[in-house]
Amino acid sequence: MNLDEFETDALAELFNVGLHRAAASLSEITGQRIGVDMPRLVICPITEIEVELTGLLGGEIATVHQMFGGAVAGDAVLLLEQDKAAALAKLMTAGEAGLGGRLDQSAREVLAEIGNIVLGACLSGFGDMLQTPVSFSVPRIHIESLKNILRSLRIDSEEVQYAVIAATQFRMSELAVDGYLVVAVGAKSLARISQVLADRIP
């Protein structure tokens, strides 16, 4: 199960729209200009996520984790390197959170809100495309190694599982933070996404 080149491009565009919508929301909340890059997309079996992300993310990773359900169901995670996540929270709060490069409680909450906005904006695109709403669990923050994070990805089904990885960069003031969205879905959900994308391609 995989998407062809046109479907992958269409999906990247869907993420791009979601990311820009998220950046606009964050800019409005913080009163600061926040930019995002056009995401690079990789679709792979869930077992290959580590190979795809190794070398891109090192050390302890800060994640915002939300399960989602509805027309498509799965597990979505936003991954940022811990020190970059703290720097992002610090900049967004004018230095009130993330002091000394630490993800303190306030910084974690800010990160939860950022993740909720980013994941919500991107995955709502699926709902809009499929014309049925997607619902989300409350976002959870974790700080751990990449290996442990990937182990915690969960889909309640026995079917073959896939991951859509969207790599982007959040830019704010002099700071650029690489961010990775991992959306784990079952084969049925991916097939449904693929079908709708194929129908939309002229």
Binding site: Q66, M92, S106, A107, V110, A112, E113, S135, S137, V138
Partner: peptide, 10 residues
């Protein structure tokens, strides 16, 4: 239908 987080710092 959306879940919303409002952090006190923001």
């Amino acid at each position: 239908g959306s879940t919303v987080v409002l952090s006190h710092r923001l």
